[in-house]
Amino acid sequence: MKAFTYERAKDPVAAARAATRPGAKFLAGGTNLLDLMKIEVETPTHLIDVQDLKLDRIEKTEDGGLRIGALVTNTALSADERVRRDYGVLSRAIAAGASGQLRNKATTAGNLLQRTRCPYFYDTNMACNKRKPGSGCSAIGGYSRQLAVVGTSGQCIATNPSDMNVAMRVLDAVVETVNPQGQTRAIPIADFHRLPGDTPHIETVLQPGELITSVTLPRPLGGTHIYEKVRDRASYAFALISVAAVVQKDGSGRVAVGGVAHKPWRVEAADAQLPAGAKAVTARLLADARPTEHNAFKVPLVERTIAAVISQARTA
């Protein structure tokens, strides 16, 4: 691990200001950042520990939703009674990810910013435009079974590895931030993560120093909440694909998919196809899919998993 200096920020704006220093990074739970620092994929020269910022509460919003502090742990969020009752898809998505130890440490904001698990991103001997812009992409033409099938570019086919993000996307969560000047803004989750394009190293729309302070959920949607994750072992593995869905009694609803793109994948026009069935939904959702020979299986897997979800919702 490269040497760095360490500070504990006292308030969010001070943290944001400190983070404008070149080489500075926020440290929340650290479960992803420290892992990447050990293999020198991440090499910050200064860490700003945000644990004292008191952003660890879950509160009701004025319009009947929930405001989740950036530092609420994955365990606390998944276990919160209001989340279990009104946003079951979120509780289930979090419980489907990582291990108990990691969920106790990982935070809401940290999970939003979780970096890809593309093996070529992790291997510093390989070319990776995300790790080293302009160096090329070893994943394209390489072993790509885990990687993205839609929204890819000629520079990057990495996926967003988070389960939580897929549920946040289906719920239309909003990311709230503060910048070094003290200005706040609210970013819809649909706009928060970027597609790789020509700049796969820029993964979100956050500006330098901008700090996530909370994530809000709109008022409860009702319906049946389902998170179905398909992976190579029964627990503690990243998704091959996952489906987050909220389905109403009349068969209408919304659906987002994980493990297929650089961001949690949702196409509103595909939501409208839910009453018509999984084939119609998938046709819209993955209309522009460009899978590789290794991950072409993900397209029918998405369709079959959506079919399973629709059938579960019918019998719920």
Binding site: L27, G30, T31, L34, D35, G100, Q101, L102, N104, K105
Partner: peptide, 8 residues
């Protein structure tokens, strides 16, 4: 419980 290896 946490993983003490992934914490400073």
């Amino acid at each position: 419980r946490i993983n003490s290896c992934l914490s400073l």
